[in-house]
């Protein structure tokens, strides 16, 4: 057994009636990292997260979580925690009661975080005695994260944890997740928010119609995708446009593709990453200042759209 691997699955298949939710999925996640799980609605993300959390068992294939086989007779191992489809909280209980009743389920000798400490960690200490009924979606998400952390997990499985969070809450959650990973916890993060995944994850798995269409480091994903559109804001957009058109591997996007960009200082160019270096150096050599140069959509989002559309078209 490779002790550096937190999750290892081979040929995992899960069928609901006539619907194949997961179709011979292979997955491998190293310990101590945040691994993103992406896919369009109905891709099988929730089903895969459910298998990891022991909510269901695969119909076919082998799944190993934290070194333990998981199957019909073998429940998910201890040390796995998290939530899918939002955190499960009881609205008639206070935030503190929600966590305390959860902690009380653990055996006496089990290691659990202090309830107050967990609430403080997610920034809910001040509303500890308030009933969850009155909590916003973001507060519920943070309390769900606190509940998941309460059992000191080695593998944390989170489904859209940043859903409904304001920028401050999002920053807090990102901080918590980074601290957990620094402490050796593995986090599986499912999200539709590519900016979150790019900010947090070192690797991602993209699912589409129950199949894995990509799995690996984010930078590899960026290399493998098609040309991307980049916004280039300069002090002389007309001259920059001419330079871009003359640069090998670069094309200037015009018409409807750039319609969303009403800013006259901006041109949109389409290129692979390798071609961008030459464009930048040519523009700078022409004494044109570069004020902004960024992808119109993130590489992950572009790859996501590209890969999932390919899979859907199949």
């Amino acid at each position: 057994m490779d002790t550096t691997v937190a999750i290892r699955g081979r040929g995992i298949t899960k069928v609901f009636g006539d619907v194949v939710a997961l179709d011979h999925v292979d997955v491998s996640v190293a310990r101590g990292q945040i691994h993103g799980l992406v896919g369009p609605n109905g891709a099988g993300k929730t089903t895969l997260l459910g298998l990891l959390l022991g909510l269901a068992v695969a119909d076919e294939g082998a799944l190993e979580v934290l070194g333990a086989q998981v199957g019909r007779a073998l429940p998910a191992p201890g040390g796995v925690s998290g939530f899918v489809d939002g955190p499960g909280l009881y609205p008639t209980l206070t935030a503190k009661q929600n966590l305390a009743t959860l902690a009380a389920l653990r055996p006496r000798d089990a290691v659990t975080s202090d309830v107050g400490e967990a609430l403080h960690e997610v920034g809910l200490a001040e509303v500890a005695d308030d009933k969850v009924r009155g909590f916003s979606l973001g507060m519920r998400q943070r309390l769900g994260l606190a509940a998941a952390m309460l059992t000191k997990p080695k593998l944390l499985v989170l489904d859209e944890p940043a859903n409904g969070l304001d920028p401050s809450g999002k920053k807090q959650v990102h901080g918590v997740l980074n601290r957990l990973v620094a402490a050796g916890v593995t986090v599986i993060l499912s999200s539709h928010r590519m900016d979150d995944l790019e900010a947090l994850c070192s690797e991602v798995t993209i699912l589409s119609t129950g199949r894995v269409v990509f799995s690996g480091p984010l930078n590899k994903l960026s290399d493998e995708t098609r040309e991307l559109d980049y916004r280039l804001r300069t002090t002389d957009p007309a001259a920059a446009g001419i330079i871009a058109a003359e640069t090998p591997g670069i094309s200037v996007v015009a018409g409807t593709d750039a319609a969303a960009l009403a800013d006259t200082d901006v041109i949109v160019v389409r290129a692979r990453v390798a071609a961008l270096d030459q464009l930048v150096s040519r523009v700078v050599r022409a004494d044109i200042a570069v004020r902004e140069f960024a992808p119109v959509v993130s590489p992950l989002e572009a790859a996501f759209l590209d890969l999932t559309e390919q899979e859907t078209d199949r």
């Binding site: 491998s28 934290l66 333990a68 073998l74 998910a76 191992p77």
Partner: peptide, 18 residues
């Protein structure tokens, strides 16, 4: 993914079922 050989599994390294 490379699936580890089952024989190589070290029982003491496994996380027990909850």
């Amino acid at each position: 993914a490379t699936i580890a050989d089952a024989d190589a599994t070290a029982p003491e390294a496994q996380t027990p079922a909850a």
